[in-house]
Design a protein around this nucleic acid. Structure first.
Length: 227
DNA sequence: GACCAGGCACATC
DNA sequence: GATGTGCATGGT
């Protein structure tokens, strides 16, 4: 292992420890079933989680939280339920595409779908219109218990602000970086992403609050205040 | 009232 | 292959 690689390994371990000490266990991702988790992954695309919660509550109230119910229900009823999560027309379509895939390919069962090997399932999910790399990895990690590192806007922002990666690093490169340097453990990967979301929301939005951030001590000297 | 949020597909160059 | 644009709501 190269010196550079060891240093990255240490930085990512420090990051996890600091976040973990600050927040304790996050038990991320919320959801009563694997299917609900997958639905949340689609609905949270470019959207605040609070808005997603309302939409999921609507789906539950309308008894629509199952793949076949979603496929059977009229488009406008589905869109109405999804309204609070924003982009409701796009998301209604994306949800249908996913449900169609699930019913056609896996008899409507996320559990059955999860039996596929990780990379095979990932490739299948990426073929579904409306599921990109982050959504696919959310579903793999939290709904299917596959060990995969989820990269999101916060992950890229936090690592680049700490000088660990180039801000323009691509999704797959950043995922590979984590998977090379963090030992593959399901609970740790689930927690790691959850902690990044917590940190991101609290300290690392467009107007970052680095002074209060538990990761402050990891900032390379001279970078503080340059965000 | 402007700006922003855990993306993604599609058009255009 | 990079870059731009539409999609929509609710919080700050």
């Amino acid at each position: 292992m190269t010196k550079r690689s060891k240093s990255m390994q240490r930085s990512l371990a420090d990051m996890y420890r600091l976040m973990s000490e600050h927040f304790g266990p996050t038990h991320w991702w919320p959801g009563d079933s694997p299917f609900e988790i997958a639905v949340g992954a689609i609905l949270t695309q470019n959207t605040a989680w609070t808005n997603v919660e309302r939409a999921i509550a609507n789906l539950k109230r309308a008894k629509l939280l199952s793949p076949r119910k979603i496929l059977d229900c009229p488009a406008d009823a589905l869109e109405e339920a999804l309204t609070p999560s924003g982009y409701f027309r796009v998301k209604a379509k994306r949800l249908r595409h996913f449900c169609d895939y699930l019913v056609t390919g896996h008899r409507g069962s996320v559990k059955r779908m999860a039996q596929l090997p990780r990379d095979e399932l990932r490739a299948e999910l990426l073929q579904v219109n409306g599921i990109g790399p982050e959504t696919a990895d959310d579903i793999l990690l939290y709904a299917c218990d596959h060990v995969v590192f989820v990269v999101d806007a916060y992950t890229r922002r936090i690592l680049s602000r700490h000088g660990l990666v180039d801000p323009g690093i691509g999704y797959e490169d950043l995922r590979a970086l984590f998977e090379r340097h963090v030992p593959p453990d399901l609970r740790i990967y689930q927690e790691y992403h959850g902690l990044i979301v917590f940190i991101g929301k609290e300290f690392c939005r467009r107007k970052p609050n680095c002074a209060e951030c538990p990761l402050h001590s990891l900032l390379p000297s001279g970078r503080f205040g340059l965000q």
